[in-house]
């Protein structure tokens, strides 16, 4: 799962620049970019949303 973003990079590039059949480019790019960022953040920092609310809970 940690490497799902690699798939997104490849898939996004193929759809947008090779097949060029994406109509809803805004939503498509939004989803791809968010996925890539999320995947990279998870891989690099072992990020968990729990860390965000930990401070509030304490």
């Amino acid at each position: 799962m940690k490497y799902a973003f690699l798939f997104l990079i490849a898939y996004g590039i193929i759809e947008l620049f090779v097949l060029k059949r994406v109509q809803n480019k805004i939503a498509f790019c939004f989803l791809c970019v968010s996925g890539i960022l999320a995947g990279a953040a998870n891989l690099l920092f072992e990020f968990s949303f729990f860390d965000l609310i930990k401070g509030v809970l304490q």
Binding site: M1, A4, Y11, Q23, A27, A38, G39, N42
Partner: peptide, 25 residues
């Protein structure tokens, strides 16, 4: 986004979910 066809978004949507799943805790 005023674009009715969302079928093309299925794969990026679920791939994004796959990226987010480990981050849920």
């Amino acid at each position: 986004t005023k674009k009715g066809n969302t079928r093309e978004l299925l794969i990026p949507y679920f791939a994004l979910c796959a990226c987010l799943v480990p981050m849920m805790g």
